[in-house]
Amino acid sequence: MPFPEEIKQRIEAAIPGAHAEVEDYTGGGDHFRATVTAEAFAGRSRIEQHRLVYEIFGAEIGGPIHALSLKTQSPQQTPTQ
């Protein structure tokens, strides 16, 4: 079962300089919400930013990870909320 800390570490390992905050928002170990800040997102569209994160997990998205809700931003951006 994936845990928020594991997901955070995998995001931060895969995207250099990334900072991720991950929560399990149902407590069931399969629905996660991540806010990811990374220099790699600068100049990329939201879709490209989210793809960079989704690609880390491949087929786990929709499998053991039922949902990974994302908010992504580059360090220069203020969070869009």
């Binding site: 939201r46 879709i47 989210h50 809700s69 994302l70 908010k71 869009t80």
Partner: peptide
């Protein structure tokens, strides 16, 4: 996009 992007 998906739900997150559409909502944003």
């Amino acid at each position: 996009g998906g739900c997150d992007i559409v909502t944003e």
